[in-house]
Amino acid sequence: MICLGIEGTAHTISVGIVDKVDEKCKILSHISRTYKPEGGGIHPREAANHHAKHIPSIIEESIEKANIDVKEIDMIGFSIGPGLGPCLRTAATSARTLALLLKKPIVGVNHCIAHLEIGRALTKCNDPVLLYVSGGNTQVIAFMRGRYRVFGETLDIGIGNCLDKFGREIGLSFPAGPKIEKLAKKGNKYISLPYSVKGMDVSFSGILTACIHLLKKERIEDICYSLQETCFSMLAEVTERAMAHTEKEEVLLSGGVACNERLKEIIKKMAQERNAKFFSPPNELLVDNGVMIAWTALLMYASGIEHKIEETNIKQNYRTDEVEIKWRN
């Protein structure tokens, strides 16, 4: 069964075409375009305009690249939430149009769960604790009693947002994460920052403020180094707590910030220390992508979920644990 998935929750608009063969995920094509603000962070309307401009051509391109006829598409999936309203609406509108045009079923997918499902499909993990880290989201998720439950999350801003905001203070363009990673490699002095773990939750806004205050006193490289070490250690700690609590022995790292090599190293070490297994999908599928949406839509459809057009209203604050996971036991 072939599904075309459209992802558009934030700054990336992406189309993935996936074929489900013998319960396995076969990626036929994957094309993304990313909105880059001229200055500052993501402007939701500007991002949505960017998506609207690119979506028709990337749909065409992806069908061409998948080497299929448009009639071979069996269903449409799209990111229904959570995310930025204007971006979500743009993706949803194109998904509805395609579904009506092709007379094919449509399924709205929870973006966070899609990150988890594509990880399960493409790595060898089966029942992991997911550390999902991106610009807007920072969650520790695991499957329990029929749902993906959030065991820990940020109480204020996402880790990526924390890095981007700090980057903006020091004149780095969006996204600042990879640039901070480079600077951090040249740092070697650890400066103590507010380490903020509350049970299984984390908070980053205090660290951000502390780092901004350090700007006049310390080397930028050392601040970046300390910022990364502090935030990533916090993430490792809450993930470990969730693993101990749920007695799960696999950890899956996903989301845009998971491209950071130091974060990967830290989470991997944490897993090794407790004899657990570490998994992470390839970088192009760590960031927002249409493939994960298409794959999750296929899983949902196979478990009997199909949305009527009037049920495809976007859900900006869609929670991970609202979704009934019928495709897992």
Partner: peptide, 13 residues
């Protein structure tokens, strides 16, 4: 001891 944390941070925490 948590080896995933750098020594200074680990000691401090």
């Amino acid at each position: 001891k948590k080896r995933y944390r750098i020594k200074e941070l680990d000691e401090e925490i």
